[in-house]
Design a protein around this nucleic acid. Structure first.
Lengths: 203, 203
DNA sequence: TGTTGCTTTGACCATTTGGTCAAAACCAAG
DNA sequence: CTTGGTTTTGACCAAATGGTCAAAGCAACA
């Protein structure tokens, strides 16, 4: 599996994936049509199928490409940094990613919601490995008294749930608040995680 | 719009909605087919369409019915009770609901993810009203010093995000942990919200 | 300019799917 | 057992949709 060679191939490849992301995020895999993707990409349906053999191939290409980016904020959590600051920085990076890439967040959410038919392997493999790795780091911080005792795995679930919620459930948030409130979200999450993980002061 | 009259109508109505919930939760609205619903309900497609004029009608019936149940845990939060206990009890009720009714949670998530085409009115109406109402209660508790100062709205978003995550992203949770861990989830969330909302002790 | 290989698309096909319809099966009351 | 309404379904239809194909367009190089 090689990357596209010619300049025009690279361009159209990217163009199609961009369009597919748009449509998949909005309509879901089943709801998206190749025609919609083609129209969004500004080309004919057969031409889209010339670059990607099937609709599923586009979906998989997006998910594969996405997973890496998606995990970056967690990868960047540094075992050598200040524990509380590292976790808070992770939360902020993740929230920023949700704000900047809501389509990716929804694409991911839709895939998981449907039982992760195209990602189960990656979840049980790369994701699990990374998470276990970082959980060990967190457990180390806790053992050293640098972090309040929490379940490292559930802490990470909390970060995912809380940050992605603002992208995936954006419609609901806006319906309730009357509009977006990313600043409020960041303040709230910073506050929440600070209280959550700051170890009790040595009495 | 009346409820079904005869005994057989009531039975089949319920049977179809049960089947539709199953299929919609698993496949999403676009992915679900009337045939699947019919087969799950143990009857023919035309018979399903005899009770519900369209696929959309089933979806709407489910969502309408769901919204009420869904908000119950929040409705039950009592302004007269102990603030910290009330919030924690709300979290536990919501988590329990996610555990007992994952299909409903996924149905709801799918609807919101797609922009809430069938629920936007309810979100901006009933939901917003209820949330604003309860936010006022929470703000009252905070003003009285019974609760740590938090954004009431974002606090509720946090409850939703964290509890529903365990139902909606169940596949991911299980892929990472190797299996379900509702007990761990409850302990974690109890801990998290306790630290979040317990007011600083009077020094 | 002519040739070669890459790119693009109109037309087409098979399948799926939401929904219809008329006839059959069923049920309850007289 | 008959009759009138309700329930059920096999057969069917039209539209949507994923995907194919052969032919046309186009770029680049000899």
């Amino acid at each position: 599996m090689q990357q596209p060679q010619t300049r025009i191939q690279r361009k159209n490849h990217a163009l199609i994936l961009e369009a597919a992301l748009d449509v998949f995020a909005r309509e879901g895999f089943r709801g998206a049509t190749v025609d919609q993707i083609a129209k969004t990409a500004g080309m004919s349906k057969p031409n889209v199928l010339y670059y990607f053999p099937t609709k599923e191939a586009m979906h998989e290409a997006l998910l594969t490409q996405l997973l890496e980016t998606w995990l970056d904020p967690l990868v960047a959590m540094d075992a050598g940094g200040d524990p509380v600051e590292e976790v808070l920085a992770y939360v902020r990076r993740k929230l920023e990613m949700a704000r900047q890439h809501p389509r990716e967040s929804r694409l991911f959410a839709g895939e998981i919601l449907r039982g992760a038919p195209h990602m189960l392997g990656a979840l049980k493999g790369d994701l699990r490995t990374l998470v276990d790795d970082k959980a060990a780091v967190i457990d180390g911080w806790i053992a050293a008294g640098k972090l309040a005792p929490v379940s490292a795995h559930h802490l990470m679930f909390s970060v995912w749930a809380l940050t992605q919620h603002y992208a995936d459930f954006d419609v609901q948030v806006q319906a309730v608040l009357g509009g977006p409130d990313w600043a409020g979200a960041e303040a709230h999450l910073s506050d929440l995680f600070t209280r959550m993980i700051t170890p009790a002061s040595n009495s």
